[in-house]
Lab assay of single mutants.
Amino acid sequence: KLLSSIEQACDICRLKKLKCSKEKPKCAKCLKNNWECRYSPKTKRSPLTRAHLTEVESRLERLE
């Protein structure tokens, strides 16, 4: 599967780190437990900047 097509777990399953069936409108866990089942939009991760990478590398060197 391509990364862009990976389905996201519902908010509660993601928060509780449960295996989500990803069914809509309610996944199996939410249906069974009568929880409100919501699927928040995916958040875009910002790409690493060179400055951040350099900072992490220098912190790693100090720890070694």
Rank of each mutant, 00 (worst) to 15 (best):
L2K: 10
L2V: 14
L3C: 14
S4C: 11
S4A: 14
S5H: 11
S5Y: 10
S5Q: 09
S5D: 15
I6H: 10
I6G: 09
E7S: 09
A9P: 04
C10F: 00
C10K: 09
C10R: 09
D11G: 01
D11A: 01
D11E: 00
D11M: 03
D11I: 05
I12D: 11
C13A: 03
R14I: 03
R14H: 00
L15F: 11
L15E: 11
L15I: 10
L15D: 12
K16A: 02
K17V: 04
K17Q: 05
L18W: 10
L18Y: 09
L18P: 10
K22A: 02
E23F: 09
E23G: 12
E23V: 13
E23N: 14
K24C: 14
P25G: 11
K26L: 15
K26E: 12
C27I: 03
A28T: 14
C30D: 03
C30G: 08
L31P: 05
N33Q: 13
N33W: 02
N34D: 12
W35A: 14
W35I: 14
E36Q: 10
E36N: 13
E36S: 14
C37Y: 09
R38H: 11
R38I: 13
R38A: 13
Y39A: 05
Y39D: 03
Y39V: 09
Y39L: 06
S40V: 06
S40M: 02
P41L: 04
K42W: 07
T43G: 09
T43M: 12
K44V: 15
S46M: 07
P47A: 06
P47I: 00
L48S: 05
L48C: 05
T49N: 00
R50S: 09
R50T: 05
R50C: 02
R50L: 05
A51W: 01
H52G: 01
L53N: 02
L53W: 07
L53D: 00
T54S: 11
T54M: 08
E55I: 08
V56E: 03
V56H: 08
V56Y: 08
V56G: 03
E57A: 01
E57F: 08
E57K: 04
E57S: 07
E57I: 01
S58Y: 14
S58G: 13
S58H: 14
S58C: 15
L60F: 06
R62K: 10
R62G: 08
L63H: 05
L63Q: 01
L63E: 04
